[in-house]
């Protein structure tokens, strides 16, 4: 990792900004439909444009917002929705631990904003940048604010034009959330003890769902998976926190 210089020439600054935009452009192709469908779905589920704006502006975490929307439709108590959002965004803890070491060139307020903007692709790109050239604020914020702007714009596009789709079921859109979460879960398949954690979480979730009922299947099912992971863990598998 190279040390990021604190004083930049105009040329370096411009290159950082342009590199940030160049790196984020391919990512926007994935964010656009994802955020657009969220906007459309939120309006379809009865949110106003103002409520959608507030949610997407302040939370800025698509997967957890999909879960939030899904749970709002099931009429579960608000605290369990907040808990689910917290749990789904838990992966960010790993990002912040790692990225924290790369922010030497950032002021305290730049760090505060940097962590707000910290989404999956930005984390990946910032880590790569830190190893290649050193991570400077200009690159990070160019990339991060561009993605944030695309996210908000796509939310609006979806909200305004989503209603043009007359029958969501005809396109499978009514079932997009479970399909999305399934893909997301399987994406973690290289983590230690993935299969036992997956099987135990599903089994516990279903057991709770049939007995105690919703929304406890989320927290209790998840907890069963965590216990399994803790019990199966061996000291050697500890991944350094860095």
């Amino acid at each position: 990792m190279k040390t990021a210089g604190l004083i930049l020439s105009d040329g370096e600054l411009r290159r950082d900004v342009l590199d940030g935009i160049r790196d984020v452009l391919p990512i926007t192709l994935g964010v656009l439909p994802f955020a657009g469908v969220f906007g459309a779905l939120a309006i379809e589920r009865g949110l106003s444009l103002g409520e959608l704006t507030l949610a997407s502006m302040t939370i800025y975490a698509g997967a957890s917002q999909y879960a939030m929307l899904d749970l709002m439709g099931q009429g579960v108590p608000p605290w369990s929705i907040v808990l689910a959002v917290f749990a789904i965004n838990f992966r960010h803890l790993l990002y912040s631990a790692s990225l924290g070491r790369r922010l030497a060139a950032f002021s305290i307020w730049q760090k505060v904003i940097a962590f707000f903007l910290l989404v999956d692709p930005l984390f990946a790109s910032a880590e790569t940048r830190a190893f290649k050239q050193g991570l400077r604020p200009a690159y990070y914020f160019s990339y991060g604010t561009f993605l944030y702007a695309i996210w908000m714009a796509s939310n609006f596009i979806g909200a305004l034009f989503g209603s043009l789709i007359a029958d969501p079921a005809a396109f499978g859109l009514d079932f997009i959330l479970p399909l999305y979460f399934t893909g997301l879960v399987i994406g973690f398949h290289r983590r230690p003890n993935f299969l036992p954690v997956l099987v135990i979480s599903i089994a516990a979730s279903l057991a709770v769902w049939f007995t105690i009922g919703s929304p406890w299947h989320i927290s209790l099912g998840g907890l069963a998976g965590l216990l399994a992971a803790a019990l199966l863990s061996k000291p050697g598998e500890e991944v350094g926190h860095g």
Binding site: F90, V197, I202, G222, A224
Partner: peptide, 16 residues
Amino acid sequence: AALDAVPTAVMAALVA
């Protein structure tokens, strides 16, 4: 290990 398993466990429980 438990922290690392949070996304897998919680999302699996959510979708089950």
